[in-house]
């Protein structure tokens, strides 16, 4: 079984979750098995994950903590073990990156993070590709372990609807609460976060100076887009 952790920041499923389930469904087809989606905590519209290819949607109950990677990873690992998952997929987001490495250690699994295309089978090994050297090269990995963990790069697959909503099943996990105490979440209201954006207006060093950035923002606003920039611009002060 392919288990997909469907992330739900502040109780809502985002594009990353739909992408991950779409990808999970395709990996499941490749392996001749089914795709199960897992949410942690109360999530609005979790049954909709069925539309993207999940044949079961599980909602972890007990006290797993969505904000704490340790608690979250423990819950996912427990569900994975109890349901005999052979591939576990998370989104390559701030949350997913904190969890993927933990899952790999916990499940003695091979991990490839930031995969950007569908895998291929080589015997029982899974061959997956990711972009490295900040996009300047592509590397193919082979994962030979019985359990495999993948984190899926945002925008690598397009969410596809084909199925129907499925009833959400509550599963109890024995995981304890996390040790990280979140005090506040500051979000930029009214702005679409980059991973969620449909259109991105990006610019680089050619803009010369921050004072010239206005036209980028103006264009983005007109298009209903989000702005982005190249690595040298992001890392400059």
């Amino acid at each position: 079984m392919v288990l997909v952790f469907a992330e739900s920041p502040r109780g809502n499923l985002k594009k990353a979750a739909f992408e991950a389930v779409t990808y999970g469904k395709k990996v499941a087809e490749l392996l001749g098995t089914t795709c199960t989606a897992l949410t942690i905590g109360k999530v609005n519209g979790a049954d909709e994950l069925g539309r993207y290819g999940a044949s079961r949607v599980l909602q972890a109950s007990g006290s797993p903590d969505h904000f704490d990677s340790q608690s979250c990873a423990a819950a996912i690992a427990e569900v994975a073990k109890n349901n005999g998952a052979t591939v576990i997929i998370v989104s390559h987001t701030s949350t997913g990156k904190s969890i993927a490495g933990r899952l790999a250690v916990r499940l003695n699994a091979g991990l490839v993070s930031g995969v950007n295309s569908l895998p291929a089978l080589n015997g029982t090994a899974l061959r997956v590709k990711k972009s490295v050297f900040s996009g300047k090269a592509i590397v193919a990995y082979e994962i030979g372990s019985a359990v495999k963990v993948l984190s899926l790069m945002g925008n690598a697959v397009k969410p596809e609807q084909g199925g129907n909503p499925v009833a959400v099943e509550a599963v109890f996990v024995s995981t304890g609460a996390g040790r990280i105490r979140v005090k506040e979440v500051k979000t930029q209201e009214g702005r679409v976060p980059l991973p969620e954006a449909e259109i991105v207006v990006s610019a680089g060093r050619g803009m010369k100076d921050p004072s010239n950035w206005g036209i980028v923002e103006e264009l983005a606003e007109t298009l209903g887009a989000t702005t982005a920039c190249s690595r040298p611009v992001a890392d400059s002060d």
Binding site: A73, S98, A100, G101, R102, A104, V105, S113, V139
Partner: peptide
């Protein structure tokens, strides 16, 4: 180079520490 963001979470898990 490998843009993985993997090591921190793994170290934390091995050592049973928050990350």
């Amino acid at each position: 180079d490998y843009n993985g963001s993997e090591v921190g979470a793994m170290v934390a898990e091995y050592l049973d520490l928050p990350y």
